[in-house]
Simulated scan of single mutants.
Amino acid sequence: MYLNPTHSSSDAAVAAQIVREQPLASLITTDEAGLPQVSHLPMHLNVDGQGGWTLLAHMARANPQWQQLQARPQALVTFLGPNAYMSPDVYAEQARVPTWSYVAVHCRVRARLIDAQDAAAKDALLKTLIADHDPAYAAQWRSLDAAFQQRMLAAIVAFELQVESWQCAVKLNQHRPEAHAAMHAHYAAGTEAERGLARWMERLGLASTAGQGA
Rank of each mutant, 00 (worst) to 15 (best):
Leu56Met: 06
Val170Arg: 02
Tyr85Met: 07
Gln74Pro: 02
Glu21Ile: 01
Ala179Tyr: 03
Ala62Lys: 13
Ser39Pro: 06
Ala124Arg: 15
Ala116Tyr: 09
Leu35Met: 15
Ile18Tyr: 01
Gln94Thr: 13
Ala84Tyr: 02
Tyr91Asn: 07
Ser9Arg: 11
Ala111Thr: 06
Leu41Ser: 02
Pro5Asp: 05
Pro42Leu: 08
Thr128Met: 14
Val105Cys: 07
Leu27Gly: 02
Ala119Ile: 11
Arg112Ala: 10
Val109Ser: 03
Val170Ser: 00
Gly190Cys: 05
Asp11Cys: 13
Val103Arg: 00
Asp115His: 07
Phe148Pro: 02
Met43Gln: 09
Ser101Ile: 06
Pro23Asp: 01
Ala131Ile: 06
Ala182Asn: 08
Val90Tyr: 08
Ala169Leu: 10
Gly52Asp: 15
Gly34Glu: 12
Leu3Arg: 12
Lys127Phe: 04
Gln37Ser: 13
Gln68Gly: 07
Thr30Glu: 09
Val103Gln: 05
Val157Pro: 04
Leu80Ala: 11
Ala124Phe: 10
Pro135Cys: 13
Trp100Val: 09
Ser101Gly: 12
Val109Asn: 05
Ala16Gly: 09
Asn63Trp: 00
Gln94Asn: 12
Ala25Arg: 04
Glu93Pro: 00
Ser8Ala: 15
Thr6Met: 14
His7Asp: 15
Asn46Ser: 15
Leu153Phe: 09
Asn4Met: 09
Ala33Ser: 15
Met152Gly: 01
Ala12Glu: 11
Val38Ser: 08
Gly81His: 01
Thr30His: 10
Arg195Cys: 03
Arg112Met: 05
Arg142Ser: 15
His58Lys: 08
Ala210Glu: 10
Ala193Trp: 04
Val14Leu: 14
Glu93Val: 08
Leu3Thr: 11
Ala188Gln: 09
Leu206Pro: 03
Ala119Trp: 03
Gln94Val: 14
His40Pro: 04
